[in-house]
Design a protein around this nucleic acid. Sequence first.
RNA 1: GCGGGCGUGGCGGAACUGGCAGACGCGCCAGACUUAGGAUCUGGUGUCUUCGACGUGGGGGUUCAAGUCCCUUCGCCCGCACCA
Length: 801
Amino acid sequence: MGYDHKSIEKKWQKVWDENHVYEVKNNYLKPKFYALVEFPYPSGQGLHVGHPRPYTALDIVARKKRMQGFNVLFPMGWDAFGLPTENYAIKNNIHPGVVTERNIRHFKAQIKSLGLSFDWTREINTTDPNYYRWTQWIFLKLLENGLAYKKEMAVNWCTSCKCVLANEEVVNGVCERCGSEVIRKNKTQWLLKITEYAQKLIDGLDTVDYIPRVKTQQINWIGKSTGAEVDFDTTAGDKIRVYTTRPDTLFGATYMVISPEHPYIEKWKNILKNYDAAVDYREKASRKSEFERTEIVKEKTGVRLDGVMAVNPVNGKEIPVFVSDYVLMSYGTGAIMAVPAHDERDYAFAKEFDLPIIEVVSGGDVSKEAFTDIQTGTMCNSDFLNGLSVSDAKDKIIEFLIKKGIGERKTNYKLRDWVFSRQRYWGEPIPVVFCDKCGCVPLPENELPLTLPDIENFEPTDNGESPLSKVDSWVNTVCPRCGGPAKRETDTMPQWAGSSWYFLRYCDPDCDTAIASPEALKYWLPVDWYNGGMEHTTLHLLYSRFWHRFLYDIGVVPTPEPYAKRTSHGMILGSNGEKMSKSRGNVVNPDDIVSEYGADTMRLYEMFIGDFEKAAPWSENGVKGCRRFLDRVEGMMYMLSDENGLSAELEGKIHKTVKKVDEDIERISFNTAIAALMTLLNDIYSLKRITKGEMRIYLSLLTPFAPHLAEELWSRCGFEGLCCQTAWPVYDEAKTKDSVIEIPVQVCGKLRSVIKVEADSDKDSVLEIAKSDEKIAAQISGKQIIKEVYVPGKLVNLVVK
RNA sequence: GCGGGCGUGGCGGAACUGGCAGACGCGCCAGACUUAGGAUCUGGUGUCUUCGACGUGGGGGUUCAAGUCCCUUCGCCCGCACCA
C-alpha cells in the first residue's frame, strides 16, 4: 500500500543531480546563508541513525533559505584522519588510505540516499594532501607567531592506542576512544598556546548566538579565576610564591602546601631533614594515574617538610610547609597558602593533620565546617582588614601587597595548552625538521604539503615513537636553512587539526594559493548556523574558535568568530531507551529504514521524534506513523480540484500553518512544524477537497521535510519547475487572525463556559456576552461580582462572592 | 561538591511574554470495508465515586488566574571534578 518510495526517490535524486540544483556559486551579489553540520568521521560501521538527525535539520533550514532567495552554502566532507581507521588498517594489513577511501564511498552513498541538499562539488577530505597542505600551513603560522612550542611534560598516555591524548580526550581516567587505561608519561610534545587565547575565547562568546549550555560549558572549561599571587619568605632564606583567590583571608593562613612536583623540594634538598620522605611521596603520586589521583577525594594525604618554615607576610608568623597532591603543579604557582577556616579542602587537610584553624571572616561556625560564603561575611582577626566586607578586604589587601612589593593581582585559567602531537601514522605530518646546527626548523611554505610516506607497517612502536620514525628515507632529510643533514619530526597532528578550519575550505575548496580566497571568505563568513554534538563543545568547537581567532589576528579571515549561531541535537537512543550499541542489540540501520519506508519517512520521523535538543528513543511505530502521514499526503491528489485560489474554509488555516512552520524551523522546533502540517492535512481530509492553490502552498511547506514526495506530487499536479526551487510561501499576518474568536469564561478561576465574540470587541461587550451566557448566568446568579478580568483575545474571569 | 538541564496521560511529546493543560503522533477501544487484517477509513480515548470533582514528582507561597513565577523537598540526566 501507499506510494512507491523507491522509484520516486531515485527519480528525483537523479533530476536534482542532473540539474545541479544544490550547487552554489560564489555569487557575491546575492544575500548569503551558510548552514553547516559537523562533517563525519567515516568509520567502518557506516552511517548511524544518529547522523541524519542534525543533517536533516540543517537540510530543512538550507532548503527553506534557498526558497527564500538566499545563496545557500550547505557543504559536506570527511574528517578522515584518525585512530580507528589506523587500528583497522593494522589489524587487516590494509593501507589506512585505502580503508578511508572505501569508508567514504560507503558513507557517501548512504548520505546521498537521504536526499540531503549538500553541494557535493565542494566535498573536502582532511586526508587529501591538497587539504592538509593548508592544515600544515596554519601550523607553520602558529609556530611563526610563537603559539606552537615543544616541551617535555607528563602527558596522558593511552596504553592500548600507544599514543598521547589531549586532556579533552581523557574521560574518567580512560581513553575516550578505546576505553583503556590512561597513565602519565613524560614525553616531549608539541603544544599549542590556546591558553594565550583564554580571555578572547570567553569574550567572543558575548558576540555569538550559541545555545546557553554550550556557552556555559565553554566558560566553565576555560575556568577563569581572579585573585593574587603572594610571596612568602621562608626560613631557608628564599621566597615562595602562592596563588590565591582569597587574598582577603591572608591572616588566616596557618600553613602552606606545595605540589609534589614543586622544584623547591630539590632546591631544599640539603636543608630538609625528611627529604627522602618528600621524594617518596612524590614518587607515589607520580605513579598514580590521573584517575587514581582524582578518585581518592575523601582523604587528604601529605608530608610535612621538616627543616623549613614559611613566614606569613602580614603577621610574621612562621607556618609549616606541606607537600600534598591536592595541590597541582600545573595550576597557579604549584603552591598555596592554606586557610582552613575558609576553604573546604584546607579544612579537611587541617583536620587530618591537626593544624590550627583561625577564623578571619565571621558569619559561619568554623568549629564545624569551613565558612566560604563571600557575600555575607565580615572580616575579623585581620588587623587593618577588620570590619570590612570580603570584596573590600580583597581590594585593600592587594593594594597593600603591591605597595610592599610582595604580591600582585593575578588571573588564572583552568584551560591548559593543547597537546598537539600524536605518535601515529594516520595524521598530518608536522612540517618541521631538526637540524644539529639550526635546531628546530620549519619547512618553507613552498615545500607544503609534506606528504605522508607510503609505508608497509603502521604498528606503533613500543617506545612511544611514531611509526614514521622507522622510515629512514623519509626521516633523514636536509635542513632547509643550512643544507646540512636533518631529521624530520615524526609525530603527526591530532584528529582535531583538520576539523579546526574545514568550514573555511568549503568557501573555496579548490583554491591553491591560500586556505581560501579572501573574497570567498569575506562573502561566506561567518557560518550563519552551525549544528553539532554537545560532546564537541570543549574539543572541536573550542579548538576551531581558537584557530579562527588566531587567523583573524594575523589577517587571514575577516571575522573574529567563526560561527554566528550554534545549536546542538540530542542523541537517538535504542527503543529500550538505552544508547544504541551492538552489545545491547538495539542498533537500527538507517539503510533498512530508507529501504523499507523511504528517505522521506526517515527524515520526517527523525524530525518528529521529539525535542530536537533532547535524547529520544527510537520507535518503529513512530516511523510507521510518519509513513502513514506521507501516504495521506499522497492521498490528497485524489481530492484535487481545478481552482487556483484558496477556499474560504482553508484560507485562514493555511496562513496560520505557513506562519507556524516558518517560525518553528527558525526556532529548531521541527516536531511542532510537522505537527502543524499534520493538522492542516487532517483539515483537508475533513473537507475532502483541496484546490491547486492550496496544494501548491502545502507542497512548498512540505518540501524541506520530505523533498522527494513533494517533488513528485508537484510534478503530478502539473506545476511548473521544481518544487524545491519554488518560492517559500509568505503569510499574511491579518489572515492568520480569526474574525470571530472563542473566549473561555471562568468563574473564580474555574472554566465554566466558552463564548464566541468578534475579535475586535471591547471589554464591556465581551463581559456582557459572558454574563448573559446561560451557564455563566447560573453560576453568578445571586452572587456579588467583586472582580471582572478580561484579557483581550484570551479569556474572561469573573470573581464572585 | 560545583555548573547546566529536566520531571506533564499507557508511550514520544505540545502548551512562545502566567490566561481553555494534554496539540500532533504512537498505542489502545469501538465501528465500517473485508474470506481475512498486523492494510485502509470513521469515531472515541487524562483520572475518578462522571449534570460534578481531581489533575503537570511532593509540600508551601504569590496571583483574579500557576506546568509556567518564588521558597522548600525528592528523583533523574549531562558537563566539570582537589583549579587554591
